[in-house]
Amino acid sequence: MPNVIIDPNDVMIELKHLRKVFGKQVVLQDINLDIRRGETMVVIGQSGGGKSVILKHMIGLLQPTGGEVSIDGITISTPDFFDTRTIRKRMGMVFQMGALFDSMSTGENIAFALREHNPNLSEEQIQNIVTEKLELINLKPEFRSKMPSELSGGMRKRVALARAIALNPEVILYDEPTTGLDPITSDVINDLILDMQRKLHVTSVVVTHDMASAFKVADRIAMLYGGHIIQTGTVDEIKNSTNPYVQQFITGQRELPTGLEDGD
């Protein structure tokens, strides 16, 4: 469990009545969620339930159908307003499959945005930052010359994390960071997520359905069900939840458990 002091009143990301409709399909009904500065919030829920859609609203890849998204008190998107370019400089995202630029080496993947956004940095300074970021994710500098196709799934995600932290973001969003990885590699990624919080003091949002990962990295967990956040709480609160949908999900049962109060 992370050991970082978090002020409950210092909200970094705020979703107010967020609603998203694709065609006729309502993916998010009414999402209300506050993420505090410096905390790691894990959003859990079934596959296809809209967890990644929430994440994409936070970083401005999607515009809401209803409601609003605010980052550090600045409204970045509503159905009528969408200005995410400035806020993205303060955020990084690790995609589910890494989304590394296949035509560039590992080092170039990390350096590319750095070079484009900081034209005053010398090549030596850029390479020093690349080395520093690789060290942060426990990779040797020699890895900079490897192409993404030469990397394993776990390595790709680590490099994706190095790329996400290259611009020193205040917020890191992780989309299913442990999906497709073996349990040991998953734990390496979990430790890196915790490391980022401790060393870089970032606010993190992790979307996952891997409960071992969620319990390890989370300060708080939010459960998404039916387009709503049905419960938010600490790891212990979620473990001891009386909501049958939460219990069904965290214990991985096919049927709803009986003898609990109805979550609706």
Binding site: L61, F112, A113
Partner: peptide, 10 residues
Amino acid sequence: EELAAYEVLN
């Protein structure tokens, strides 16, 4: 999601 990665990195 490489295209999205470009956008996320501004």
